[in-house]
Amino acid sequence: MTNAAIPLSVLDLAPVTHGSDAATAVNHSIALARHAESLGYKRFWLAEHHFVAVASSSTTTLIALVAAATRRIRVGSAAVQIGLHTPSSVVEAFGTIDAVYPGRLDLGLGRSAQRRADFVASPPASPPAAVTRANAADQVVDGLLIPAPFPVESLYGSPRLAASFDATLFDGAQPPDFADAVDDVLSLLAGTFSARDVVLRAVPGAGADVQVWLFGSSKGQSAQVAGARGLPFVANYHVSPATVVEAVEAYRAAFVPSTTLAEPYVVVSADVVVAPDDATARHRASSTYGHWVHSIRSGAGAVEYPDPATTAPLTDEQLAVVGDRVRTQFVGAPDTVVDGLSTLARVTGADELVVTSVTHDFDHRLESHELLAREWGLR
C-alpha cells in the first residue's frame, strides 16, 4: 500500500501562542481548516479542553464556524468529553450543524471526564520520580518507538484538575457510564431513544447524517466499546504512545460488525513538525513542545505555546516528565517525517492517520501541513 492510499487528516487544538490571544487562535483554526481542505486532507478535527490556553473549548461552536468556512472537508470533534455534556445536548448540537452542512460531521466521543473521581479523590503524587523510573523500559517494535508508559496516576490529586472538573459540572452531577452514554448518543441519532418508557426525539438530531467515532489511549473501555458497537476507533499515539498498539489490538479483538462498519476501521494520531530541512524542523519544535507538554503533565494546564527563540531548554527533571512525548514527536524534513509516519501506519495497521502540528509561528504550522501533504502524495 502506498502512502497516498492511507488518508491523512488534521487534529487542531486551537493553541493560544505566547504573545497572542484566544481570538487569534480561533481565526487561525478556521484558516488552517481552509488550508487543510485545499491540500487534500480528509478531515479536520478539533479537541475539547477547558480553562487552559487552548481556544477550542466550545468545540461544537468552532466546528460550526469551520464547517461554514469550508466546502468539502469533514469536520468533527476529537473528542467531545461526553461526561461533561448530556448525550441529548451533544446530538442536538451536531444535528443543528448537520442541518446546514449535511453529511460532513464526525462526532468523536471521549471518556476522560468519566475519570473525574480518579483525578479528584486521590492524594497528590510526585510525577518526576515516577516518570524517571518508568523511562527505563522503552521498546522499539518493528521500527516504531514504544516508550514506557507515563504514570497518569501522577496527575491524581491535582488541585487545578479538580477545580476544572468542578467548574464544568453541576454540583453533585455524576457522569454516566461511558458505554451507556455512547448507546444514548446512538439511539438519539437513530430516533429510537426513550426515557422513563417515553420515546423522545431529538430535534434536530434524529436522523442526522453524523458519523460517530470513539477515541481512546489504552486497551480499556473506549477500545472495548468501539469494537463491541462496530464503530470506528481512534488510538492516540500523540497522547499515549506507550499504549497505542495494545489499544488497537483490543479494539480489533472486540470488534463486532455493525450497520456502520463491516470490519474494523482504525485511525492513529501523531504529533508532527515538518520544515524544509531537519535542522529547521528541530528548531521549530525544540524545547517549546516539551515545555508545553510539561505544563499539562505537571497539572498546571496547557500554557500559551512558547516561542523557541526565547525558551530555555528543558531541564533534566522536566525532560523526565515529557520524554516519551518528545521522543515520539515526528520532526524533520518531509521525507524524514513521512518515513516515521509510514512506520506508525505499518506497525499499527492504521487505515488513516490524523496529525497535529503545533508551532509558535502560525505560518510554520501552515507550512508543516503543506510539506507533509505534498510528500505524502495528497492531491
Score class of each variant (00 low, 15 high):
G40Q: 05
P204E: 11
G349N: 06
P151C: 08
T70Q: 07
F170W: 13
D177F: 09
L319I: 11
P159D: 10
R72M: 07
L105A: 03
G332R: 01
L32I: 06
Y156G: 12
N236P: 08
H238W: 13
I82W: 02
E48L: 02
S56N: 14
A302R: 04
L231T: 10
P149L: 13
W213F: 11
A14I: 02
S298V: 06
A281F: 03
V185G: 04
V331E: 04
H360N: 04
V199T: 15
H35N: 12
L186Q: 13
P232A: 11
K42G: 10
S269Q: 03
G40H: 11
S88G: 11
L319H: 12
A68P: 00
A228T: 11
A228F: 15
P204F: 14
A206I: 01
R379F: 15
V338Q: 08
F178M: 00
S57C: 10
G216P: 01
G340E: 00
Y305P: 14
A5F: 15
W45L: 14
A173R: 15
T336W: 10
T315C: 04
G377A: 13
P276S: 11
S217N: 15
L214M: 08
S57W: 06
P264S: 03
A69P: 09
R365A: 03
T86L: 05
P176E: 15
L372V: 10
S298M: 01
V234H: 02
A242P: 06
